[in-house]
């Protein structure tokens, strides 16, 4: 599925300073029953966002109008747990294009890159600075530059670099996915399979 190209994103951010945000919180299992990829944003953080009677929980950050933007900033070990790509779909569908944390769970990171969400891993110290900047000004903007591999707190000019491998960077900048690339290797794959003992 094609996704938007990612180059430079300048946006305010939504802070979620909670550690170990797992994919069951991002999208609870009971909302995984669709056979098509649509509408998952409605149930993003469902049980933290809504009461049992579907009224919004006023103290949850997504229900607080002073916070908005295309960047979600989470605590350490973001996206742990289940491999459900639905978690990344829900984040994308809600309108986020970038998730920032000091540490990501592996499968979530892979899934995000595969659908066009940029996971930006920063140091714990820089993460704290981001949370403080948003606390000081909920509209504080961050600039995420994929070409430069940097994230900047625009109000203070503080900046940090982040890692991404060259292959994934190229894909995200161009909106390419791995499926097309793998199709181009079909002959090599067939030859490999012919020698497989299984």
């Amino acid at each position: 599925m094609a996704y938007d190209k990612f180059t430079i994103l300048k946006s305010s951010a939504v802070p979620m300073p909670i550690e170990n945000v797992d994919t069951d919180q991002i999208i609870p299992a009971r909302f995984l029953k669709a056979t098509e990829r649509k509408g998952f944003g409605d149930n993003l953080f469902r049980d933290w966002r809504f009461n049992g009677d579907d009224t919004p929980k006023q103290d949850f950050v997504l229900n607080n109008a002073i916070y908005s933007g295309k960047i979600l900033v989470g605590g350490r070990n973001f996206g742990s747990g289940s491999s459900r790509e639905h978690a990344a779909w829900a984040i994308y569908d809600y309108g986020f294009r970038c998730v920032v944390s000091s540490f990501f769970a592996d499968i979530f990171k892979n899934n995000s890159l595969n659908i066009g969400i940029l996971p930006v891993q920063v140091s714990p110290e820089f993460l704290d600075k981001i949370f403080k900047a948003i606390e000081a000004d909920p509209k504080a903007e961050l600039e995420v530059s994929l070409p430069a591999q940097t994230i900047t707190i625009l109000a203070t000019g503080e900046k940090e670099s982040f890692d991404i491998n060259g292959y994934k960077k190229h894909n995200m900048q161009n909106g390419f996915d791995d499926i097309d690339y793998l199709q181009s290797l079909k002959t090599e794959i067939q030859a490999f399979a012919a020698n497989s003992p299984y």
Binding site: E85, I107, I115, L185, I189
Partner: peptide, 18 residues
């Protein structure tokens, strides 16, 4: 190991993932 749905599509179509 576990994979996401995009990777399920990769395996179905190419028997490989990245």
């Amino acid at each position: 190991f576990g994979i996401g749905t995009s990777e399920v599509e990769m395996v179905l179509s190419s028997q490989c993932i990245m």
